Simulated scan of single mutants.
Amino acid sequence: MLFPRVGRKQPMLRIAWWAVVAFLCLGIALHLFPFYFMLVSSFKSGEEVLAFPPTFWPQDPSFAGWKLVFQIVQGSAGQLLDAPLWLFFWNSVQITFWVLVIGIPITSMAAYANSKLQRGPMARWSFLFFIGTLMMPAALTLIPNFLLTRNFPFALPNAPNIPGTDTAFPTFPIWDTHWAVIFPICFQAFNFLLFKGFFDTIPDSVIQAARVDGGSEFNIFRRIVLPMSVPVYAVTIWTAFSLAWDQFLWPLVVLQTPERMPMSVELYLLMERIVQSGGTSAEAAAAEAEVMQDMLGGGLSWNGLMVLAILQSLPVFIAFIVCREYLLRGIRLRGLK
């Protein structure tokens, strides 16, 4: 611990102790304040949410924002959305599901092979190859990913020819499909680093003993390594889930059909429509009072957007609750039985 129990009653040490506690409490309050303000704003009326100075508690609680979102979910909110909101939520669920089902096994097996199967220069170069993707900005991969979706599985403007022939390799264009969003993020170098660091802590003697008993590498991984790796799997599943659920730029680029958009992109497009309608501007509400009163009364302002933001962040929060024990405990091996 930062301050040992012995000597905590000394005046200077107690002052330092309470100073650290106050600093941490301030950090927690600053971190939670946006979520508090988002939750409170969702229960404000349209007029109150645009009032200045802002109120930190609803003076006249209203469920207009929640009623508007209920209408959007049913698809009865006019031209705000191209389809019911549940369809975009389902798109996000599908994308996230396949990212986890495909990405976590691939990443963990690649890390296990690099940690326990490869030796010498091959292991070092493979490790650098996988980790090197962390050094590249995400914007740098947009063009290669674009070419990959156009000529899958080749990230090239045109598919190469089959050696010795003039016939090109067959390609599968996945542009404007969910697979174009799923494949580029299946492998995550950060999760590979977590898996590799954890597998390195497993003694080689355990693996060798299983090999002597006649176990294949897959059975060793499935029967010995996998049960010992529950903490790191919980951490990587949560990080992969958060990335897949909240991704925005790449789905916005690669998906063109409105009905295939994930929740994160569709909420942005909905916010743009509400902003353009003047529902988030106090000046516009004052200039067109009669028209805007109906819009604000119907939740077409920041209160409705805050409700949508709560719904968007709720799955990530639920995933954190499910994995919280291992996230808070950290990635460490407590012992072998």
Rank of each mutant, 00 (worst) to 15 (best):
P170K: 05
G120I: 14
L267R: 01
E217A: 13
L81M: 11
L333Y: 11
K9R: 15
R260V: 02
M306N: 03
T239Q: 11
I185H: 03
P251K: 11
F198M: 01
L327D: 00
E325H: 15
G27H: 11
V21K: 10
L226E: 01
P61Q: 04
R14F: 11
V99T: 10
I28Y: 13
P251G: 08
M228I: 04
N303E: 08
R260E: 01
A210H: 05
F187N: 04
P54L: 06
F320T: 06
W17C: 09
A210G: 11
L87D: 07
I274E: 03
W302Y: 15
C25K: 08
A309S: 14
W18Y: 15
W90H: 07
W57M: 10
Q312R: 11
S242E: 10
V69L: 01
L300V: 15
V181A: 03
F199E: 00
L148N: 02
Q256L: 08
S264P: 12
A289G: 04
F3L: 14
K337G: 12
F130S: 12
I331Q: 10
R150E: 09
G65P: 06
D166F: 15
S115A: 15
V73F: 11
A138M: 13
P34G: 04
I106V: 14
R8T: 10
R324M: 09
V316S: 07
R324L: 06
L270M: 02
L68N: 02
A64N: 11
G7C: 10
E259N: 02
F218N: 03
F172Y: 12
